[in-house]
Design a protein around this nucleic acid. Structure first.
Lengths: 224, 224
DNA sequence: GTATCGACTTCGCCTAGATGAAGTTGATAA
DNA sequence: TTATCAACTTCATCTAGGCGAAGTCGATAC
């Protein structure tokens, strides 16, 4: 395959472009730019005009907010084949969040302008975007629910269950500090919670791996 | 005007249907059903199949989540001319949240089925839906930010500022308990926070009204 | 007028979880 | 092999804010 074909093949696996016409994809791909980031580099900042939609070829990226004192809240962690910062591509607004690489990462960036045109030209693409955004809203509602209505130990238990189905949440760059910031708590409190889950017989863990021993116990602590 | 024309006129003021073709609106309106709720009635529950998109002719409605112990978190408060529960109309899913009237309310319900058809037929309507959903996502991100990165007094200060620009957040049904549940705190803590804002010279208040005295002070406490 | 009732306030106590400090561990490099 | 360093753990202390109890206030009903 030519380099372009590899890229097209790769794009056609993304949630936005599944089963997409390859000629349209070829056109899209021709506008894509490739970026390489080292670990812990800022990709973009909240409030800046958005460059475009980002795709992760390989690596880990955190999406986060900062308060004036510099405290951080991680909204999401993305990995291979994920896309992020789509919102500005749809509403022409500025970046709603900050983005930083958690590991050495290879990314692609697709300029915003392309999207709005595509939405107006292709009703089925528009419908797909609407479905994706609807799922996003549901996900954010769930995040708010978990943050406001459940204690740290419940949130940690749910996170461990989530990790089991999402390899992105394990591995390079996903440190206790990042998990803590994602669960709106501290690394120390995560440690304590994991120890409690272990004493309850739900998991065993060391600093690299968390293993679920009794999913039923874990789920009951997670109130699921 | 005939009753139908009043309704069409009313629909044409909603964010989804501004500047809409009146013939299409007439068709839409013909499927709408009217509902009257007393104060504190359940309109629908999370997890139920969605009846449709709701419109508030007059009244107040809270959208909320409950945890297994019955603790509540209010996600949003809606009032006259607002619409809610649009998500299931786009993705055919179940209700993501619970809804309850906060006052005697008159509502309209527009069956889901109509929307998807409209999206596929009208690219500009689809674009409008995408813009609305994008704004929704931005709003939810802001909510998460405020809940995780700011203390109660900051959240209360921001709420008071929000009230000044949004009459929906004042008046019948919007009790301390509802505000507390919206800010993920308790009525007692709201009282304490308001007293602190008063002592700082930012506001004066009694149990019915909060008046901003020095917006600059309030904004600085709100960290804005 | 007085009774009732729900919303609001105030106060005291209490706890989940934040914070800071002092290790421990394990990976990488010299 | 040893030094370094970042990530992680553990523990002691502290505090924001939750919670229960006891008023207060003001609207509505009688």
């Amino acid at each position: 395959m030519k380099p372009d074909d590899i890229l097209i093949d790769y794009f056609s696996k993304l949630v936005y472009f599944e089963n997409f016409d390859h000629n349209v994809l070829r056109e899209l791909v021709s506008h894509a730019q490739r970026f390489v980031f080292a670990s812990n580099e800022i990709i973009f900042l909240e409030g800046e005009p958005a460059k475009g939609l980002w795709l992760i070829e390989q690596g880990r990226v955190k999406i986060y907010k900062l308060n004036p004192e510099g405290r951080e809240h991680v909204l999401r962690i993305f990995g291979d084949k994920d896309t992020f910062n789509d919102i500005p591509a749809f509403d022409n607004g500025v970046n709603p969040v900050n983005a930083m690489s958690l590991s050495d990462s290879t990314l692609w960036m697709l300029p915003c302008a392309i999207f709005q045109d595509l939405i107006l030209r292709d009703a089925h693409f528009a419908m797909r975007v609407i479905r994706i955004l609807s799922q996003r809203v549901r996900g954010l509602i769930t995040q708010i629910e978990e943050l406001t209505l459940y204690s740290v130990i419940v949130r940690v238990a749910r996170f461990v269950l989530k990790q089991a189905n999402d390899p992105v949440l394990i591995g390079e760059g996903v440190t206790r500090a990042v998990i803590a910031s994602y669960l709106a708590t501290t690394p120390q409190t995560i440690s304590t919670a994991l120890r409690e889950l272990e004493q309850a017989g739900a998991i065993v863990f060391d600093r690299h791996r968390i293993m679920i021993i009794r999913e039923d116990i874990l789920r009951s602590i997670a109130m699921l």
